Deep mutational scan, measured.
Amino acid sequence: QYKLILNGKTLKGETTTEAVDAATAEKVFKQYANDNGVDGEWTYDDATKTFTVTEKPEVIDASELTPAVTTYKLVINGKTLKGETTTKAVDAETAEKAFKQYANDNGVDGVWTYDDATKTFTVTEMVTEVPGDAPTEPEKPEASIPLVPLTPATPIAKDDAKKDDTKKEDAKKPEAKKDDAKKAETLPTTGEGSNPFFTAAALAVMAGAGALAVASKRKED
């Protein structure tokens, strides 16, 4: 009698068979294992007439167990938060979910874009303008004329002030004479000065007065 010990991944146990020799028993056991989907390494112990079949655990490639991950970057252009961060993800969709959660946790809500070549996400917050509040242009400074500094008044001594007054009066006198001369030139000519009769009478009076003066002097002599 021969014995078979099964150490399979899905089947474990023992069974026996009657055979004329070990070779015949081995054929029977291998057919049995094959029928039950057991495929492994076989050993035989002649002392105990025991066969053992052991399935090795399937070696799984690490790449099959853990999907390949890629590093993705997020650029934040927020109104109050600006910067960059990264995450590792199996695909862009997974990275996007992580980045949007990160942005939401930090109060950033804007327009999202993605560049597959650089594996970069960008979120930009738009500045909202309040309706009716149009931007006002800064007032242009008016052209200013530079002020001319005033010349301080120079105090005048009393004596100098009197001299100035005297000079002013002396300066006025010639001007007054000139005014009188002008008035004389502009006076109208009277009839006496221009009538020949009056001129002859005046000469006769003057001659008579002269003769009287000569006669009076002779009497005195």
Rank of each mutant, 00 (worst) to 15 (best):
V38R: 02
K9V: 11
A19N: 08
K27I: 05
E26D: 00
Y44V: 03
N36E: 04
A19I: 06
W42T: 00
Y32E: 02
Y44T: 02
G13E: 05
V38H: 02
F51I: 03
V20E: 08
D21R: 12
A22K: 03
Q1S: 12
D35K: 12
T48P: 10
N36I: 06
K30D: 00
E14L: 10
T43M: 11
E41V: 15
V53H: 03
T43W: 12
W42G: 01
K49R: 13
K27E: 01
G13S: 04
D45Y: 10
E55L: 03
A47Q: 12
T24S: 14
N36C: 07
K9I: 10
D45R: 13
N36P: 01
T17G: 07
A25S: 10
A33N: 01
E26P: 00
L4S: 06
A47G: 12
V53M: 07
D35A: 14
K12G: 08
T17R: 12
K27F: 03
T48H: 12
G13A: 05
A47D: 11
K9R: 14
N34Q: 01
D46S: 15
F29V: 06
Y2H: 11
V20K: 10
G37Q: 07
G40F: 03
F29H: 09
G40M: 02
A25I: 04
K12D: 07
V38K: 02
T54Q: 08
A47V: 13
V28K: 15
E41D: 11
K12P: 04
T48N: 11
Q31S: 09
A22W: 01
E41N: 14
K3C: 08
D46N: 14
F51M: 04
A33C: 10
L11R: 04
L4I: 04
L4W: 02
V28D: 05
D45W: 11
T50S: 09
V53G: 05
V53F: 08
T16S: 11
T52D: 07
G8N: 03
L11S: 04
G40D: 01
K30A: 00
G37D: 07
V20N: 11
F29Q: 03
D21V: 14
V20R: 14
T50E: 14
D35S: 15
G37A: 10
D21S: 12
T10K: 06
T54C: 08
Y44A: 03
I5Y: 13
V28M: 12
G40P: 00
L6V: 12
K49H: 11
Y44M: 05
E55P: 04
N7W: 12
D35C: 14
Q1T: 13
D39Q: 10
V38G: 01
V53L: 06
G40V: 02
T48C: 12
V20C: 11
F29E: 01
Q31T: 08
Y2M: 07
V53R: 01
V20I: 11
Y32V: 04
F29D: 00
D45P: 02
A23D: 10
A47R: 13
V28T: 12
K12C: 11
V28E: 05
N34G: 02
D35E: 11
T16V: 08
V53I: 05
K30Y: 00
G37M: 07
T54K: 09
I5L: 13
T54M: 07
T15N: 06
L4Q: 04
V53P: 01
T48I: 13
D46T: 14
D39L: 08
K9F: 10
V38L: 13
F51G: 01
T52R: 09
F29Y: 06
D39R: 13
A47P: 12
K27R: 06
G13D: 03
E14T: 14
K49N: 09
E14P: 04
A22E: 05
K27V: 04
A19E: 06
D35W: 09
E18C: 13
T52Y: 07
Q1A: 14
W42A: 00
G8M: 04
I5M: 09
A19Y: 05
D21Q: 14
Y32A: 04
D46V: 14
T16Q: 11
A33L: 02
T43C: 10
L6R: 03
T48A: 11
E18H: 14
N7V: 09
E18N: 14
E55Y: 04
D45A: 12
T48S: 12
T10Y: 06
E55W: 05
A25L: 01
E26G: 00
D21K: 10
V38C: 04
T43R: 12
G40Y: 02
V38E: 02
T43Y: 09
V20F: 13
Y2S: 05
T50K: 15
Y2K: 03
E55I: 03
E55S: 06
K30L: 01
G37T: 07
Y44D: 01
L6F: 06
D45G: 11
D45F: 10
Q1C: 10
F29P: 01
L11H: 04
N34S: 02
G8V: 04
G8E: 03
T52V: 10
A33Q: 01
W42M: 00
E14C: 12
L6K: 05
T15M: 07
E14N: 08
D39N: 14
L11F: 06
Q1N: 11
K30Q: 00
D21M: 11
K49A: 11
G37F: 07
G37K: 06
T50Q: 15
T43A: 14
T48K: 13
T15V: 08
Q31R: 13
A33E: 00
K3E: 07
T54W: 08
A25F: 01
A47Y: 12
T50V: 15
K49T: 10
N34V: 01
N7K: 12
A22I: 03
I5W: 12
V28S: 12
E41Q: 15
E41K: 14
A23M: 15
T24Q: 14
G37N: 07
T16W: 13
Q1D: 09
V53W: 07
W42Q: 00
A23T: 15
G40E: 01
K30V: 00
I5R: 11
E26I: 00
D45S: 13
T17S: 09
E41W: 15
E55R: 05
G37R: 06
T16P: 06
Y32Q: 05
W42V: 00
V28R: 15
N34Y: 02
T43E: 10
V53K: 01
K30R: 05
T16I: 08
T15I: 09
T17Q: 08
L6G: 05
K9C: 10
V53C: 12
N34E: 01
T17N: 08
T52C: 09
V53N: 04
T54A: 08
A22V: 05
A23K: 04
T10F: 06
W42S: 00
N7M: 08
E41H: 12
K9L: 10
K3T: 09
Y32C: 05
T43Q: 13
T52L: 07
T24R: 15
K9P: 06
F29I: 04
K12M: 09
K9N: 11
W42F: 02
A23C: 15
A25T: 06
D45C: 12
T10Q: 06
K3M: 09
K9Q: 10
V53A: 11
T52H: 08
G8Y: 05
E41G: 14
G8H: 04
T10A: 06
E55T: 06
D21T: 13
Q31I: 06
K27S: 02
N34R: 02
D21L: 14
V53D: 02
Q1P: 13
I5F: 12
N36D: 03
G13C: 05
Y44Q: 02
F51V: 02
A23Y: 15
E14V: 14
F51C: 02
T16H: 13
L6W: 03
G37H: 07
A33S: 08
D46E: 11
V28I: 12
F29T: 03
V28Y: 10
T10E: 05
Y44W: 15
A25W: 02
V53E: 02
V28G: 10
G8T: 05
G13L: 03
K3L: 13
A25Y: 01
Y44H: 05
Y2F: 10
L6I: 15
